[in-house]
Nucleic acid binder design. Structure first.
Lengths: 180, 180
DNA sequence: CAGGACATGTAATTGGTTACATGATTGC
DNA sequence: GCAATCATGTAACCAATTACATGTCCTG
């Protein structure tokens, strides 16, 4: 699974607690990878057994103690090996498309049009968020020479915007078709 | 889970065997939903218990016997209810984007460029397939009046092509960025 | 005579979600 | 006083993958 590798990649430059990792998944990384806190703690535990990560406990008086995780040498090696291997394609599963095929025959077209309109709004809201992020962090656009970390992060944002724009265009098209 | 509903939708107009369902998943439906034959047979078994489907055995002399499944009234109702409910968004999990963020710092950019080029080829091959399907089955473009079944199937194809075109454009952009 | 199409499954394991659980501090 | 943030987990269950299992017919 790649959740392990997603977590390893988050720890590549600095140590973090499970809580920190969860926050990152809830933030911008959540746009292309997600995990619940339960799963994160479980995965950290198995990676500990595998000796991919180690931790130190940081005691706090006002807040609960925390465990800071960092990569072990073998964890770092695993991450690099994984990143150098071809991606295995994970299957697309899009329940909307199953529903669309029922429109006009087994389910009224109107029902699907409403759903598409709801989705369109959400998509447009998300696009606005992406545009905000772009303005705040990626203007002017970073390059690999000036700032490779920012340049690659910007690419992930660009992935989000360009696929989302395509989805928005399709959603509008689908609404039009069903309204015929 | 929606696998149950994907299968129900396949049985909405005619009875099919598990083998037939598997073939459909391996074909064009596989572009937006997939399942292994093991999972299909297991799911059919649980849907039988739930009384969403029933089957009759068709004996064959030259080939193994087959079980033809069809919807029960409650299975049909479940499908319609499900199709009328809002889609629950399934999390995007894209391991490529995790790898991209490591490029230029922890993994050589060249390694990722190679991977992107490999993916680009696959994407272009798939786009060609989509275009073939379009020419073979959807020319001239069907409308909801003339043929609602074809019109909604065409929408699923359009989803495939427009998101794929966006991915191709992004892949080219990512290669350029990493080549800087 | 080997490999693919036909046709169905079981078993073990991994990955992911949902529900349950605890407990202090800070801000409204 | 109530919700949110901080911080960590366990347990039960559901979904999906991988490995194992069987047996015939047809085609090259």
């Amino acid at each position: 699974m790649s959740l392990k590798h997603a977590i390893l990649s988050m720890l590549v430059d600095c140590e973090k607690s499970g809580y920190d990792i969860n926050k990152e998944f809830s933030g911008t990384i959540g746009y292309y990878w997600s995990a619940s806190h339960q799963q994160i703690y479980k995965t950290l535990a198995t990676m500990l057994e595998q000796d991919w990560v180690s931790f130190r406990t940081v005691e706090q008086t006002d807040k609960p103690d925390k465990k800071f995780y960092q990569l072990t040498p073998s964890g770092r090696q695993e991450l690099i090996d994984w990143a150098s291997k071809p991606c295995k394609e994970s299957p697309d599963r899009n329940e909307l498309l199953i529903k669309i095929r029922l429109a006009g025959t087994h389910v009224p077209a109107e029902v699907l049009i409403n759903e598409l309109q709801r989705l369109l709004e959400k998509q447009q809201q998300r696009l606005a968020i992406y545009q905000d992020i772009k303005q705040q962090f990626f203007e002017p656009a970073p390059t690999m020479q000036s700032n490779p970390q920012m340049a690659t992060s910007y690419l992930t944002l660009r992935y989000g915007t360009s696929t989302l724009e395509a989805k928005i265009a399709w959603t509008k098209e689908a609404i039009k078709t069903l309204q015929q």
